[in-house]
Design a protein around this nucleic acid. Structure first.
Lengths: 191, 191, 191, 191
DNA sequence: TATGAATGAGAGTTCATTCAT
DNA sequence: TATGAATGAACTCTCATTCAT
């Protein structure tokens, strides 16, 4: 039997793509990505039929990675603000731990090369976040009358800004993290 | 005497670049931009020595356009919240009036091709915004202890999100506009 | 003891190559040929050291297949025109029965990738045809003074044209077959 | 004003393509064609949007070239056999004068890359040949009951064979030319 | 011997930039 | 100054061939 396609190599390519895209945008050459991944140029295409598919897979992979991190140690029984804060903190943890993924995702989010289907699939990954919002609404912890998607969009936007400042200013990272949370909690909380 | 370089043509190129970048990202071909501008491919380069300079000029031009719109009819003597709201509303007006510019700016903001100098210059354009923040802080209208840049970043992020939702959902545009303002005012106001 | 290279598999590859070349020309990928043959990509190269050898083997295989068909039921004792007509009819039978082989051979015949040696070997396969011509000349049945190779070339060319029309127009196939024979018989017969 | 696309350069590319295809088949690299034409690799694509269009244009250009040569000095009032012979001779003249075009056309004719539309257009170019056949039929000079397309196909096939032998054997070229004509005239004439 | 992933040279094509007109 | 054809480096992708399994 021949070598089988390895999940490992696929992941190496995705990681390399994240780095490449973070540094050079979606225009990062596949040859650079191959080099970063330590594979031959052609090997990219045995794992991803073309560059667009690689980019879309990267987008989804980043979203999944984020979601997974966000729910690590999730305190299911804690009061809702605490759970929001948990998710918030994990979000920023992820961004600090995976700078390439964070920056690449920012590039991909504004790129025309990510299809509507992929974006929809990316939102689906965060389906359980909707549950958190619904519960927050029902319990009166969150401000009423805002579409959940809009709230989520604002949180994402503020989180990105916060991560950007944390990354630029590591010494004050903890301050930004807290200030960011306070800002969004005031923005969306019913307090 | 030779014809002067026409400011008009330069502007046509910038507008075309905005459209091109909005639709195809920073990878939009200069040939496409030339076509959109109604000039010859080569003419781009009599106005901008290379594509990076064009992109950086576009970034600055978009920032200036935004700043200018924001201060139209600025109520210098009104209470500070009203002035913030004015600026907020004008920001969103600009985004709705200039969708290409708005989207292009989002692309450029995350692109490696915009230099640090250009970014700094872009912030300088909004220098008087800093005055508004300082005054807000001094008067106690804004929450204390946050770096002005961070506040401004959050506002920008929320504004972009709001514009995105307004554009997607024109019927509810007014609702998003107000909800967005309430969210940021709670986030940064001392209220 | 290891399995023997299976003649069957070799033939499957040749048949797949015929189909591939018929459909996509000599540029048909070896990976396509492998898929059509139902073998792994690498297996092609245990039967044929490289693609050129495969192509040359296919050429010869097609010629042999044709020759074999032509002589099936050959009426050794019949008058010469009848023997010519037999050969003619078998030729066309072969073309109709093996369209992939027929078309592939047309592609290979004009390809630079078939070596002079292979072409010579291909002619050798039809050596006994020369005997038929010689006898025809000697008996006065064929026009004098033409090089045998030229006559054979003309017959081949007319046969290919005839097969093309038969394939395009199956309803009139019998008419073309007869018309084709009459044409070449007038062309080369002494009548 | 800039340099204008020159018919001359377009023709140089077509001539280079003919040479390239004659020598290496339709797989001849565009880079080779560019080099043969003495232009940059990219220039090919300012004249032909892609390689397929170049190949199809070459096919048509070869057909036109042939047709034009065939009708040079056409003896409109001569008896029909003489006119057929004129056309025949010019056909072979063309093949001897333009070996690259002749061989390239043979390659293109069997290639999948020439579209049905292009083939139809190629036949249209020879429309007046149909007139010659019709007249031949009406006057009784040609054998009755054969589709014109079939006759034309046979002539083409025999001409190609004849040119092949003439090219291989220049010393006997005149003999082949005459023998070829006699063969086709017996094949299609009513004599 | 069979498999098919891995390889990298080379293919077709794009595109920022130059330059003859 | 304006034009757009010309250029060739660089890009994405293909494919014959190799080789670990």
């Amino acid at each position: 039997m021949a070598r089988l396609k390895s999940e490992e190599k696929r992941n190496a390519i995705l990681a390399a793509a994240a780095q490449g895209v973070a540094e050079r945008g979606v225009g990062a050459p596949t040859s650079l990505i191959a080099k970063l991944a330590g594979v031959a140029e052609g090997s990219i295409f045995t794992y991803f039929a073309d560059k667009d598919l690689l980019l879309n897979a990267l987008y989804l992979s980043a979203k999944s990675s984020l979601r997974e991190t966000m729910y690590e140690g999730y305190p299911s029984r804690a009061p809702i603000e605490e759970r929001f804060e948990h998710v918030w903190n994990r979000y920023l943890d992820w961004g600090m731990a995976e700078p390439a993924l964070r920056i690449a995702m920012a590039q991909l989010t504004v790129s025309e090369r990510i299809t509507a289907d992929t974006r929809a699939e990316g939102e689906r990954v965060f389906g359980d976040i909707a549950g958190l919002f619904n519960e927050g609404m029902a319990s009166g912890a969150l401000r009423q009358g805002q579409p959940i998607g809009f709230m989520a969009g604002i949180i994402t936007a503020v989180a990105e800004t916060t991560m950007h400042f944390m990354a630029q200013n590591p010494a004050q990272a903890a301050d930004y993290r807290r200030a960011g949370f306070e800002a969004i909690w005031r923005a969306i909380g019913s307090g």
